[in-house]
């Protein structure tokens, strides 16, 4: 139940925050553009390398409008961005949306699947570990989590491949699919990458939930709820968990952002056609417009997920949401 006063306060706040996010992205776009501009030479020289001379260079420059001033070019680029036009890839000679789009879709599928299974599991494990604090259950959960957190993801991935694919033969070891394969085909192949990402990610969130849950369980209101005679599940789920999750929301958002940015190592180990591998290829090909677009995409992911996390925290903590004058 949200009353009118609260709603208008919330609405104003949300609009302010969204506006601020756009301002941030605008600044980021300038920084990215300026950084690329500062590189010696221009995009055509970088791409053509030793062949960058004479007519070939002139043609390339004309094609990509490099003969205009940097400010003019930023204006063209930014205006394109505002209309959803990222520009053209030099190497592939097609619109960047077509290059980035399907690969980003693959990364999102992989990331969301890992997050969708991993985050609820991490929260549940954190709550269990906190409840059985410093007992055997906690020891094992925390121990195993730290173990996987400390092993680099490419080792985890390789181990999982040799276990599940080479030894047991249950799951495909590497992904063999076209970039724009249908979703069902993607799902049939991503078992091991999802598992690898989960193992790396769960530990962070689980440990955060555990420690904030321990704090909450020691608080006066949990003691009071216990002494009110509440059953355990009610105590945990209704009184303790919402308060324990608040500090974890931002961490969870950062984890999702990390997944959405394409986890390069995992994509390389499993030969997965996602945004992580694309970014490495773009740099290797010296395809500067593509590098520029990917950098901006990553920034947009981080900014929007952070914004989402902040708004969610706001929604869930009554103290921040209701800024009424005290009676």
């Amino acid at each position: 139940m949200v009353n009118g006063q609260e709603l208008s306060y919330l609405l104003r706040l949300v609009i302010q925050r969204i506006f601020a996010a756009f301002v941030t992205l605008g600044v980021v776009s300038m920084v990215v553009f300026a950084a690329i501009e500062l590189l010696p030479g221009d995009a055509c020289q970088a791409f053509l390398g030793q062949m960058a001379q004479g007519q070939r260079l002139a043609n390339c420059r004309a094609e990509h409008q490099l003969d205009k001033s940097p400010i003019e070019r930023y204006g063209i680029w930014a205006a394109g961005l505002a209309q959803g036009d990222l520009g053209n890839s030099i190497k592939r000679s097609k619109p960047l949306e077509e290059v980035i789009g399907p690969r980003f879709r693959n990364t999102v599928i992989l990331g969301l699947t890992a997050a969708g299974i991993g985050i609820p599991m991490a929260i549940a494990l954190g709550v269990i570990a906190a409840w059985f604090r410093e007992r055997k259950v906690d020891f094992w959960i925390s121990g195993v989590a730290i173990f996987f957190m400390t092993i680099p993801d490419f080792i985890t991935g390789t181990l999982l491949i040799s276990l599940f694919s080479v030894w047991l033969g249950w799951l495909p070891g590497i992904v063999i699919m076209r970039v724009d394969a249908p979703i069902t085909e993607v799902f049939s192949q991503i078992g091991l990458p999802v598992l690898t990402l989960m193992l790396v990610m769960i530990a962070h969130i689980m440990r955060m939930v555990r420690s904030s849950m321990i704090d909450v369980l020691a608080s006066e209101f949990v003691m009071m709820a216990t002494l009110k005679g509440l059953p355990r599940w009610r105590l945990l789920l209704l009184h303790a968990l919402p308060n324990a999750l608040l500090p974890a929301i931002n961490l969870i958002a950062l984890n999702i952002a990390w997944l959405m940015g394409g986890v390069l190592v995992v994509e390389v180990v499993f030969n997965y056609p996602g945004i992580g591998r694309l970014s490495v290829n773009a740099i290797a090909d010296r395809d500067l417009p593509l590098v520029q677009a990917i950098a901006l995409l990553m920034a947009a992911i981080y900014v929007s997920l952070n914004l989402l996390a902040d708004l969610l925290t706001l929604m869930l903590s009554p103290k921040l949401r209701t800024q009424r004058v005290q009676p």
Partner: peptide, 15 residues
């Protein structure tokens, strides 16, 4: 039943 020292801390803040 218990009446706590600091009711502000003893009531669950999110409910």
């Amino acid at each position: 039943a218990l009446i706590p020292q600091n009711a502000g801390q003893a009531l669950t803040p999110t409910l």
